[in-house]
Design a protein around this nucleic acid. Structure first.
Lengths: 340, 340
DNA sequence: TTGAAAGCGCTAACAT
DNA sequence: ATGTTAGCGCTTTCAA
């Protein structure tokens, strides 16, 4: 199994060693027919013996296809994103594709620069996960196949869009709080220009309206965009509480914010869930292990990832997608725990 | 800014449009000298006007250099790994490299297959993060430059090794528990063939010895390798407790296990930290937000990532490394919180 | 069923 | 300072 050859061997050399032409070797490797069984056997033997490995760079140049997918993600260290990327990588690997990972940092310039690089590396497709602003397909070459996850494309025509039902998540989460008796609700939110954040907020507002609870701006607690950490949420909530802005229910736009909120309430002397009920979003693994355990809205990241990859592969194989396929909303689930 | 060209333009065409040769265009693009300022201006203008973008595949084939680094990681959805990968990607991007991410799933076959693919894609180097068994450099071509993080290379000669001081982490964590008065310690551990796990365990044992606490096998609570989730830890700890295996201090090999242990103790009626003190490893963001907050050993993932990349880049630039550089141990920190 | 040859877009040696 | 040319390793047309 030792592959310690200094110089990679090429198809040309395999051809010479096998006494056939490079074309035939290529046909054998790719199982393209037009060779005899006997030839196949012999060529394969030589390939094994010499530990030949395909040079995908040369293949890519010739075929204008890199067997590589670019994945744009704001920040891979985010638990939800990394779980999606994990799924994508596994699925795409099984289909013969590699994944180039691009942390955009929510920086438009970096995103743009990365797109240029990815084009230069001839990626066969783009998976765009979340990110500020709508994704503008005109910044990539028209032939660049793209699937957006949790991020609206500017021009839905050429780009596939797939998303969790964030609106419904916000709606149901808020409804849970209301049905548990909460009357003064707060929402804690960051990254408000994110499509998913806006949708969750919209769900929150609509729920309030449905149940006749007046929505007023002071119920929205905003956390600086660049501060997605629980600490920022903790401070903001504490500030609100100290200003006399009391609430008996909090919908946190994500679990990290929820953990920060829980801590703030505890520090302020409020008990969860007795005095204030809290629900988060993303169903982080640790929701079960906080005390009290945290209720949360769970996205089906497996399905999100798999569907996105499937659709991209269909595009790559030049299949025509129905308009239903080009825009899909994946249902969410509510997981109730002690915090409500 | 619209880049919606259907056909990418090549150096050859830029050359024709500029009235110079392809070689000159190449020189201008790569700033390789041997062209006049006037030519530069003109060529650059044509490049801008026609929205030329480098074809890195062709460049790679010619230069035998892909400006791409392969990153092998057991599971990117692990918080510690993803934070390292985030750092690596950012740093390498700033140096002009892209990152192909490979989840090995701790599966030797998948790892091997990926290595073949990466070689075929002519990656300029390999960053290997953790993983079972030692990394065997003989499974890759000799010229494949490799840096191992938290994973021992089988033959230290050709591969750079860089790791946190897991041994010291285990030692200090255990010491903290002992100094806080614990006398019956337990360690909860998974993935015991991981270099890092073994080192942490070794630190635990040595601390016990140093303080004259007899080490006996029943203090080691093992969690199935494939079950790294807190739930498995919770069940194992509960089982131990019910068997009458009481302890007043637990060192968990990672934070997830610690969270599970904390929950188990709570369920068994033990108070943390009054009855049992707990310390974890990795300093997950949520250590601060659990209740009680969790003490933990913090690895310097930023430095780990940066050093690993720096060393790899040095190898790529054919710099000779000193033996000190080829094997580095990064110090850890203990973060004490309520759980002790 | 097989082979010869062209060419993907780039760089680098060599020539001028 | 600039151009000519060969060739990286592969696939694919065309011819046999």
């Amino acid at each position: 199994m030792n592959n310690n050859d200094e110089n990679k061997i090429s198809i040309k050399q395999i051809a010479k060693l096998s006494g056939v032409s490079p074309a035939t070797v290529s046909r054998v490797i790719n199982n393209n027919g037009r060779f005899s069984e006997k030839t196949r056997h012999h060529v394969m033997k030589v390939i094994k013996e010499n530990n030949y490995g395909m040079n995908y760079i040369a293949k890519s140049l010739r075929m204008k296809k890199s067997f590589t997918i670019g994945v744009l993600v704001p920040d891979i260290s985010n638990a939800f994103f990394s779980s999606i990327v994990l799924r994508m990588e596994k699925y795409l690997y099984s289909k013969g594709y590699s994944v180039i990972i691009c942390n955009t940092d929510r920086d438009e310039q970096k995103e743009l620069a990365y797109l240029r690089t990815l084009e230069g590396k001839m990626v066969d497709g783009l998976l765009v996960i979340s990110g500020d602003q709508e994704f503008d397909p005109s910044v990539v070459q028209a032939q660049t196949l793209t699937v957006c996850i949790d991020r609206k494309p500017k021009n839905a025509d050429n780009v596939v869009f797939i998303s969790s039902d964030h609106y419904r998540g916000g709606l149901l989460a808020t409804e849970v709080l209301i049905k548990k008796g909460c009357e003064k609700l707060g929402i804690i939110i960051s990254h408000e220009n994110l499509y998913s954040s806006r949708e969750r907020l919209r769900g929150f507002k609509d729920a309030l309206e449905t149940y006749g609870l007046p929505y007023s701006v002071n119920k929205v607690i905003r956390v600086e965009d660049k501060e997605t950490k629980p600490e920022a949420a903790r401070l903001q909530i504490l500030k609100s509480l100290r200003q006399g802005d009391l609430f008996d229910g909090v919908f946190a736009i994500n679990d990290r914010l929820a953990f920060g909120a829980m801590k703030a309430c505890r520090e302020f002397g409020l008990k969860v869930p007795e005095n204030v009920k809290i629900i988060g979003f993303d169903d982080d693994l640790l929701c079960t292990y906080s005390s009290p355990s945290l209720s949360s809205v769970k996205q089906d990241s497996d399905q999100l990832a798999k569907k996105a990859c499937d659709l991209l592969l269909k595009l790559i194989h030049l299949e025509v997608l129905t308009s239903n396929e080009r825009c899909q909303i994946i249902p969410i689930n509510i997981v109730l725990r002690e915090s409500v």
